[in-house]
């Protein structure tokens, strides 16, 4: 296949795709026009019925019910998959007594070190804020969990620790991941036992707009935040750890 022929085939395909895309986009409803019944219903029920102002949180953590459990376990399962894969590989490897590269601190530049140190605490507070206000404003457990993870990663980047295990106790992170996932499932099951449906609220709703309001939704956000932070840190820690492994028999 000559280059010229390939370009002709590509050109025909690209032109066809562009034509179909333009045709498809021309028929799209204009931005903001929406006539689904459920969207309107959810937007109107959120505040009076659930005392939470973030319609997205209320939809995922209450009205959608058991579907969210599946979503919740996607990351959990992915983290376990990565761990099984990487730790399985490690069984055939030994921890390098003398790595090829000299062990150097992660932060070689002073700028990275000072910026990382300065950012770690504010980012931690931001993460807690985003988790805690999930039922009031955009954000919530997932977003806040990743932000919390970044705070620990900044400590690692800024520090002289080579090992994420020392910057972040990975055992505690595994526990956080498991506790978060289990907490979510248990609160959901509590809904079945005490209120009749999975994830249905079974505690007081509180006053609209308060930090403590929205029933179980803040608790669910905290569970998700813990789980996400733990899962991502466990994956990152395992990948970083592998940097310093040499396969057995290499020396």
């Amino acid at each position: 296949m000559t280059r010229r022929f390939r370009m002709v085939v590509f050109g025909l395909g690209a032109a066809g795709l562009a034509g179909l895309l333009a045709w498809g986009f021309a028929g799209l409803p204009s931005f903001g026009s929406f006539d689904g019944a459920y969207g309107q219903l959810l937007a109107h029920l959120t505040v009076p019925e659930r005392h939470a102002t973030s319609a997205v949180s209320v939809s995922t953590f209450d009205f959608r019910g058991v579907d969210t459990l599946g979503e919740e376990f996607i990351l959990f399962t992915a983290a376990i998959g990565v761990l099984v894969l990487l730790r399985g590989q490690r069984a055939g490897e030994t921890v390098a007594a003398e790595p090829i590269r000299q062990r150097e601190p992660a932060a070689e530049s002073k700028t990275l070190r000072s910026v990382g140190t300065a950012l770690a605490a504010p980012v931690l507070v931001l993460g807690i804020y985003v988790v805690a206000h999930g039922h009031l404003t955009p954000g919530g457990g997932f977003q806040g969990g990743v932000i919390l993870m970044t705070a620990f990663l900044l400590v690692y980047l800024a520090g002289t620790h080579l090992d994420l295990r020392r910057a972040t106790p990975l055992g505690a992170m595994e526990a956080a991941e498991g506790t978060g996932a289990a907490g979510f499932a248990l609160i959901g099951l509590g809904g079945i036992v005490l209120a009749g449906a999975f994830l249905e609220n079974f505690i007081g709703f509180g006053t609209v707009g308060n930090l403590v309001s929205g029933g179980v939704i803040p608790l669910l956000n905290i569970s998700v935040g813990l789980e996400v932070m733990g899962a991502v840190l466990v994956i990152v820690g395992e990948l970083l750890d592998q940097r310093f492994l040499v396969r057995r028999g290499d020396r």
Partner: peptide
């Protein structure tokens, strides 16, 4: 809400994962 998820996943988690995985392969 989607924008926040996009920031944490697209601008933080994904590039970090790519770099770690790349480093591992390089090693």
């Amino acid at each position: 809400d989607v924008a926040l998820s996009q920031i944490v996943v697209g601008a933080v988690a994904l590039p970090a994962m790519i770099i770690y995985a790349y480093r591992k392969v390089q090693r």
